[in-house]
Design a protein around this nucleic acid. Structure first.
Lengths: 341, 341
DNA sequence: AGATTTTACTAAAACGTTTTAGTAAAAGAT
DNA sequence: ATCTTTTACTAAAACGTTTTAGTAAAATCT
């Protein structure tokens, strides 16, 4: 069975292609009678308009591109979930690409998306992206662009983020209020803005509460910031500082859970000997023993909001309105559980 | 900046559009000299061929569609990871859609993909899909189709799966060999083939080892089969059977971990009072206390393999070769940890 | 009845490629 | 010098839509 075209319907009905096209799109200059006949025939022949032909004519692909560093993170799964649901509802398709934290790949993928003619792009940057020419190129082509979570300050476009600095500040402040003084930080890689911001929040909280910042208490996890990093970094922490540290604030829940596993394997009790505070509110954090205190990071909402912004900008562009970049900061929330008493 | 076309390059160079197109594609009837000039100009003008125009001419979109029930499952994240990496290497884009376990949505999404003119489709069925006309339609259009993980027996196309029945059989046999006799099963929804197969494997293992099958030990989890279901179902199990059950085999690791949380909250020790066996080898299973025995389910490999099959069929179709459907069964493996002694 | 408006259709061009069929000009063969 | 082949290009059609500009025929108005 070959794919059905307007022409075939037209021939079968003995009318012109124009009439068929207009009838299907309810143009006023086609009689009700003809419209019905055409629509019925289209339905019975199982007609689906060829998206490429439509795009070629209208320059609207009804497709958006999404680039993320890695999918196998609970947080990004949630974001994608939000993106897909929002896009689906508005009749947009989503082309998904993974940069695997690789700048070159990210660049290549952006080019692919441009070539495909997507109507807009949603991107969360790789940890290794320091050059933003590929993003500038998107803007030169006048394709709406939204950054989310892992953003670049210097790119002038709309962004959806959380206030990493404040969230970290709040978490560490909570630890301090509970009486902890020697608080370590397992931070993320040096590049990403949210890794930097969480670190700055940590530092500021210490300083604001009269605790001097001790660089030897800050450890850098691998690019992945996963369970294994947490385990290994906890080992290093204990080796360096034995039992002089009374709390640790980590870049992600996975790292926190890895650290807790190390503590448990070495009979270091949480929270009595050391308190732990995670980040993300990954659902597993409620299940650990003891349950993990963490920062709730609204992934689904972020995906939804970013998509909504993007679709707005696409609509604006169609109507010739230029969009002013806005930065949306989604609220976070401390989830206090048993890992800090 | 508008998007650059062949025509613009041609005008700038004072040659025909044909020459530009051919030069870029290394046709033999264009002189080396001209080719170089054209290529340089194309590069300097940042030319990217318009994918829709190419598709309209060639009927090749270099895009595949993927439909899955839900992304926020570690297993599916892994599968997608495999798909994206394989597709990326072969120059294919991936359009990702989520059916949210909804048959109507799944149908709609398949239609969208057909309309888009994807070169092939990869799908894992929703739990509520009982009618396969939408898949038949794909085949009528002669679009290569591969089913993975959640498949339909009656659809005649290539499939990539694990042997759920055998995997479950092996897991339960292991429990029996360790001396367990009253083994409960927290099964998945009634519809999905792998939920059925795992149940059948469970039942067969009991029967083969002279343990009579007791329907009251089988509980059906919600469609989600997540942590909460495990917790709630464990509660029901204990309410119904108190301490007469000595093991439980669950449909997923998440359910197992939920059950363990319930046991821990109610001072029921694992594995002394009750053993637990999960399914999937979600990385969290190695982190629980005690670490969870489970079945290793090769998600990444499944995505990679399914994509490879699909790309093969696409290639075959191009060369006019018809592909014979094959069923690939990926090996699973028991991971024995401390939840069954 | 003749002029005007409305109704209901269609032809043709356009979007950006690819490819078939062709054609001058240059080179080679007799 | 004439005929044949090769080289290096181009015109035009095609893919499947959408939309502009147009046109007969029917309906309405003087």
């Amino acid at each position: 069975m070959k794919t059905v075209t307007l022409k075939q319907i037209a021939e079968k009905l003995g009318v012109s292609v124009t009439t068929v096209s207009k009838a299907l799109k309810d143009y006023p200059d086609i009689s009700e009678n003809t419209k019905q006949i055409v629509k019925n025939m289209a339905k019975s022949m199982n007609f689906v308009p060829n998206a490429s032909a439509v795009y070629l004519r209208t320059q609207e692909s009804k497709t958006i591109g999404v680039v993320i560093p890695a999918l196998v993170h609970h947080f990004f799964s949630k974001v994608i979930d939000g993106i897909l649901n929002k896009a689906e509802k508005s009749g947009y398709l989503v082309i998904l690409m993974q940069s695997n934290e690789n700048y070159e790949l990210e660049k290549k993928q952006i080019d692919l998306l441009l070539k495909k003619g997507v109507d807009g792009i949603l991107i969360s940057l790789s940890n290794n992206t320091n050059n933003f020419d590929h993003l500038k190129r998107v803007q030169e082509y006048n394709i709406p662009l939204i950054l989310f979570d892992k953003i670049a300050k210097t790119v002038n476009c709309s962004k959806v983020v959380i206030d990493d600095r404040k969230a970290a500040y709040d978490a560490v402040t909570h630890l301090i209020n509970k009486g902890h003084r020697r608080i370590a930080h397992f931070r993320g890689d040096l590049n990403p803005q949210n890794s930097i911001d969480r670190f700055l929040g940590y530092k500021k909280a210490l300083e604001d509460h009269g605790i001097s910042y001790d660089p030897s208490l800050v450890y850098i996890c691998n690019k992945n910031s996963d369970f294994k990093d947490g385990y290994k970094t906890a080992a290093k922490l204990i080796e360096d500082h034995q039992n002089t540290v009374d709390a640790v604030f980590t870049i992600t829940d996975a790292v926190a859970i890895g650290a807790m596993k190390y503590f448990s394997d070495h009979s270091i009790t949480v929270p009595d000997e050391i308190a732990v505070f995670g980040f993300s509110n990954w659902f597993m954090s409620s299940v650990t023993n003891p349950p993990l205190s963490t920062v709730k990071q609204p992934g689904y909402k972020m995906g939804k909001k970013a998509t909504q912004l993007l679709l707005n900008e696409i609509e604006n562009k169609k109507s010739g309105i230029s969009s002013i970049p806005q930065k949306i900061i989604l609220p976070t929330e401390l989830i206090i559980r048993a890992t800090c008493s």
